[in-house]
Structures are given as C-alpha cells and as structure tokens.
Computed example of a mutant assay.
Amino acid sequence: MNARAAVAMQVHNTLGEGVTWCDRGQVLYWTDILASALWRYRPHDGALHQWTMPERLASFALCEADGWLLLGLASRLAFFHPSTQAMVPVTDVEADLATRLNDGACDRQGRFVFGTLHEPATGPKQPVGGFYRLNHDLSLERLPLPGVAISNSVAFSPDGNTMYFCDSPSRAIQCCDYGDNVSNIRTFVTLDDSRGEPDGSAVDRDGGLWNAQWGLGRVVRYTAQGQLDHIIDVPTSQPTKPAFGGTDFSTLYITSARIGLDDAALASQPYAGALFFADAGFRGMPEPRFAGPPPHVIAAA
C-alpha cells in the first residue's frame, strides 16, 4: 500500500532529524543538526519556536521530569529546560575519538540509547563509533554491538525485547534481543537499492518498523518479520526520521534534509528540509521518556 506525505511546515532545515511527539504538550520537537537548533511545532495552532544550542544537537529524549529534555549534543549529553533555557551537563561521549553523537531513543525501561557518527579529517567514515546507554543513575555504558560509521534507526519493539539499529552505509538494519543485556544480533532487513540508506526509525503499536530511507524519498513499514508492506512517498529525496503523533498517534511526522543537494536538485525538490506529515494507517505509542532522576541542581531549579 502506498500513501504520500504532505508539507506540515516549510522550515528549510539543512539536516532535520530526531522528530519526537510530546503527548503531554501535544507538540512536536525535532532538531536541525547542522544549525545547532531545536524546533518545536504545535499542530493545533501552527505555533513554531526555535532554540539555539551551544553545539550541534544530534538527538534527544523527553524526560519524566516535566518540562525537561535530555539532549544528545555533538560531544556530550545534557539536560535542557526549554522554558527556562537551563542547561545542565551530564557527561562527555567518545572524547578521544573523531566522532559526534547521532541517532538515539529511549528504551521501554526509560533509558536513553544512542549511537555515534565518525567525522574523519579526511577520507571516508569508518566504523569506529559505538552504541551507548545512559542508565537511570546517569551512568553511561557502551553496548556490545558492532562498531558504526553512521549510527541510525535506534528503535524498540512494543514489548521492549527487541532493539533495532543500523550503520547506514551498510544499507542493513540490524536487530538484537534486548534487556539489561543484548544478544542474538542479526540482520532484520537489507536495502537492495544502492541509491538509498536506512536513516531514522519508529515503531507502531503493532510492532511494525517504519524507516526513513535517505536517497529514496520514502518512509517504509516493515512487519516484525521483516516484510515490507507499506510505503509513504515523501516529496524530497532525503527523509530522515518518522515519528507518530497527534491525539490518537495516527499521524506520521517526517523530518528531511537539504544537505548535499545541488542547485538543480533543490530546484526540483522545493520542499527539501521541510517537516512532512501523512496518515499512516497505523497507530503509534507514546514516546518513552528518560526515567532517571535529574541532578539535584535540576530538582532545585
């Protein structure tokens, strides 16, 4: 089954990513990584707001502590309170490597899982980055998963027992058995079209994995068994991440990017970098929130 996405907001993001629906506020958050910007959109009245970050913002998570976000900045994790703009550092990540943070999401236990991306001075990206988990006590652990050049597609099955992830240049989405430990790493699906790479993902309440496919102008749904059964065409070649939102979680929001498109491509793709939406035909779930207790300085704010 095929559907087509429409423009929700024309925001001209260079590298829109990380789209996340906040069910408490009925608002949508996302980042323009290269602009070091956090965006918020309220669909019911079209209100749009933007915050400038101290460095590139790669991914983030909602927090159980009301009003707070956990940020995955380029070099570190930090808590951020949009209303007060308070920023509280948590920890640096891979300080000894030429990497930055990239895709991330909370697991069903309320821990933040994210990966990194290699930024070499010269030459192609290499699989030197990793996947990490920030636990409730704010301890950081590297998960025993393969190294990555460009981490993406971090998502979890509805029961929390399966984790999805990928190294985008490999064109394969992996999965593993997930809990306090990870095991049984295996290939979930492989993209056959060499023009495309898997980017960010979301999971619906039926267990389907929705993946934005960079270069192919589409978001696709795979069943839990890895069968492609639904395609949403996006009117730009570089969709980056989907997220379910709306009052009943039946709207699929999709971020996109303009980076790397030449003048001719931009002329033929006037909505590159926009925020899109589509009727998914499936329903999502509330986004898990980071459940760790904030530092005392946050509690006192």
Score class of each variant (00 low, 15 high):
residue 83 S to N: 11
residue 43 P to H: 03
residue 147 G to F: 07
residue 8 A to Q: 14
residue 271 Y to G: 00
residue 278 A to R: 06
residue 195 R to S: 15
residue 241 K to G: 04
residue 89 P to D: 14
residue 301 A to H: 10
residue 79 F to T: 08
residue 158 P to H: 08
residue 62 L to H: 01
residue 55 E to N: 05
residue 20 T to V: 14
residue 121 A to L: 13
residue 271 Y to L: 01
residue 69 L to S: 03
residue 125 K to P: 00
residue 136 H to V: 09
residue 273 G to L: 00
residue 128 V to A: 01
residue 58 A to L: 01
residue 35 A to H: 15
residue 157 S to F: 11
residue 152 N to K: 05
residue 38 L to P: 12
residue 209 L to V: 13
residue 65 A to T: 07
residue 186 R to A: 00
residue 138 L to E: 02
residue 188 F to T: 01
residue 149 A to L: 05
residue 220 V to Y: 02
residue 25 G to T: 15
residue 218 R to K: 14
residue 281 G to S: 10
residue 13 N to K: 06
residue 62 L to W: 08
residue 51 W to I: 08
residue 32 D to F: 04
residue 108 R to V: 02
residue 118 H to N: 14
residue 150 I to W: 04
residue 107 D to I: 00
residue 157 S to H: 09
residue 41 Y to K: 14
residue 105 A to S: 13
residue 28 L to E: 08
residue 140 L to T: 11
residue 181 N to R: 09
residue 169 P to N: 04
residue 8 A to H: 12
residue 46 G to S: 06
residue 195 R to D: 15
residue 85 Q to M: 02
residue 247 T to H: 10
residue 169 P to G: 03
residue 105 A to L: 05
residue 102 N to D: 12
residue 89 P to A: 11
residue 298 I to R: 04
residue 266 L to P: 14
residue 180 D to H: 08
residue 223 T to P: 13
residue 290 F to T: 09
residue 257 A to D: 07
residue 285 M to I: 05
residue 300 A to D: 07
residue 156 F to Y: 14
residue 132 Y to A: 06
residue 149 A to D: 05
residue 145 L to H: 11
residue 101 L to W: 09
residue 44 H to M: 09
residue 32 D to N: 11
residue 67 G to L: 00
residue 45 D to H: 12
residue 69 L to K: 05
residue 207 G to N: 03
residue 270 P to C: 03
residue 6 A to G: 09
residue 100 R to N: 13
residue 148 V to M: 08
residue 295 P to Y: 03
residue 31 T to A: 15
residue 283 R to S: 14
residue 185 I to T: 00
residue 234 V to Y: 02
residue 273 G to Q: 02
residue 192 D to K: 11
residue 41 Y to C: 12
residue 214 W to R: 06
residue 295 P to H: 01
residue 144 P to T: 05
residue 99 T to K: 13
residue 285 M to L: 10
residue 189 V to D: 00
residue 237 S to V: 12
residue 271 Y to W: 04
residue 77 L to T: 06
residue 118 H to A: 15
residue 89 P to I: 11
residue 279 D to L: 09
residue 254 I to V: 14
residue 123 G to A: 04
residue 207 G to D: 00
residue 125 K to M: 12
residue 101 L to T: 15
residue 109 Q to L: 04
residue 86 A to H: 10
residue 157 S to W: 10
residue 249 F to E: 08
residue 67 G to V: 00
residue 240 T to A: 14
residue 188 F to D: 04
residue 264 A to S: 15
residue 208 G to Q: 01
residue 124 P to W: 01
residue 157 S to M: 11
residue 137 D to G: 04
residue 72 G to H: 13
residue 131 F to A: 03
residue 242 P to E: 03
residue 260 G to V: 03
residue 175 C to F: 01
residue 53 M to G: 05
residue 134 L to V: 10
residue 221 R to I: 07
residue 3 A to W: 05
residue 139 S to A: 13
residue 61 A to D: 02
residue 225 Q to Y: 06
residue 25 G to M: 12
residue 21 W to N: 07
residue 180 D to P: 08
residue 64 E to Y: 02
residue 9 M to H: 12
residue 258 R to H: 03
residue 274 A to M: 01
residue 66 D to G: 00
residue 49 H to F: 06
residue 228 L to T: 05
residue 44 H to Y: 03
residue 178 Y to T: 09
residue 267 A to P: 09
residue 157 S to K: 12
residue 270 P to E: 01
residue 178 Y to C: 13
residue 230 H to Y: 12
residue 29 Y to D: 07
residue 141 E to M: 07
